[in-house]
Simulated assay, not measured.
Amino acid sequence: MDIDGFGVEEWLNVHEREATYDLAQSTITSFSMNELVKLTKDNTYDALDQQKMNYGWIEGSPTFKKEVSKLYDHVDADNILQTNGATGANLLALYALIKPGDHVISVYPSYQQLYDIPRSLGADVSFWKLQESENWYPDIEELKRLIRPDTKMICINNANNPTGTILNRDFMEQVVAIAREVGAYVLVDEVYLPFDESVDFAPIADLYEKGISTNSLSKTYSMPGIRVGWTATNAELAETFRKYRDYTMICAGVFSDQAACLVLQNRDKVLARNREIVQNNLKIFKDWVAKTPNVSCVFPNGVSTSFVKLETKTSSLEFCQNLLRDTGVLLVPGEAFDVPGHARLGYCAPTETLKKGLAVLADYLNKD
């Protein structure tokens, strides 16, 4: 099996520890355990002291499955399967369903798993391209042209990584109607929950009987360190996934499950904290773009990733390399997503880091 290098991960693996101002991440400012315990007023360490460090619950504890099922209108708790982050959830779904010769349609640019894993499994992958001129929306008419009688799956990032674009309920219902005509699955990586309440967002598992929602606590819930994600599907798909899951993962681990339950049981407090970060930082970011030459952006709808367009003398890859070397500001170059001339900018970094990093970036752009 051959597979291309994972652009964004290869970049971060090499460079993220070098950064003074890390504006490359798409997580909303990560919790420390101390901060989480203070926010929830729950001393989770007392329970950990009594917990045997065995394998724990294989598919996720009953509490975890129940709390995740509350995020959906039509998914039973038994059909929630815990995974190693959303990357594990995407891998599980693709590994279980895609075979050599299958036709897969993937939004592009997108999270690289969603098109390169199908290609590595021998699938014929067609790109459904986002249009910057249309606020990074894809064209539904293009999907109609791409769909085939043998299309096995449509893969989408909603909200999109790197652009932050959200495909609303009406648009996703059109996708479902097209997929249903040929019996295709729709896999949607939904790790970025929108905080813009004007956007009518709906998970695919609630819209379509062959919809596969993947998600995690890494982005919206600020807990990437525990590596907990899940698949949410109908009962038939959950049963199929169980067999393949046994080959890719035993369990997330006792501590990770317990921390995940703490976050989910205090979801309102966590989301209130993160909504404030998103809204405040997005205003800072918008004001910065408005007054900074040589940069523009189709702003995200209250999600934690953004994709800025850069006007630089060098390629965006070289610019980001030089920027990090000279200033300590870390972005992800657009080349990591096959979109040169851009960069992913994680504006949901700690607010002081964002302010200082943007000031340094503006000065560097002016000197370029």
Rank of each mutant, 00 (worst) to 15 (best):
E35H: 12
F31P: 02
I28Y: 04
K355G: 03
F299I: 13
A336T: 09
Q321P: 08
L23I: 10
Y185W: 14
G229V: 01
N90G: 08
N54I: 06
S133A: 12
K65G: 03
D150M: 07
G85I: 00
G164W: 02
I277F: 02
C251V: 13
D368P: 15
Y137D: 05
R17D: 15
N158T: 00
D2R: 07
L324K: 03
E35M: 07
V360H: 06
N215I: 08
D196R: 02
V303C: 11
H103R: 03
D246V: 03
F241I: 15
V278M: 12
V125R: 12
A343T: 11
K41V: 00
A123E: 12
K356F: 02
L345T: 05
N90A: 11
Y347Q: 02
N168A: 08
L330V: 13
E173Y: 05
W230Y: 05
D4R: 15
E276R: 11
G122K: 05
N157I: 06
D73N: 12
D200E: 09
A202S: 15
G302W: 00
Y364K: 13
V186L: 12
I156M: 02
T233D: 10
V332G: 09
P62D: 10
N135G: 08
T163W: 04
N161Y: 02
S296T: 15
I284S: 05
F299H: 12
D170A: 08
G334Q: 10
Q131M: 12
N366E: 10
L217F: 03
L330Y: 07
V199S: 03
I277W: 01
T214R: 06
S30L: 01
E35K: 11
A272S: 13
L264H: 05
T327C: 09
W11H: 04
C251T: 14
T63H: 14
K286M: 14
E197Q: 11
G334V: 13
K210H: 14
S26M: 09
W288R: 08
L330C: 14
F6P: 04
N281S: 09
V199W: 02
S218P: 01
Q51L: 10
D46N: 07
G60R: 03
W136E: 01
K52W: 11
L361S: 14
K70M: 12
Y244K: 11
G88A: 01
D102N: 14
I105H: 07
L264A: 04
L12W: 08
Y247E: 06
L264F: 04
L91M: 07
L48F: 13
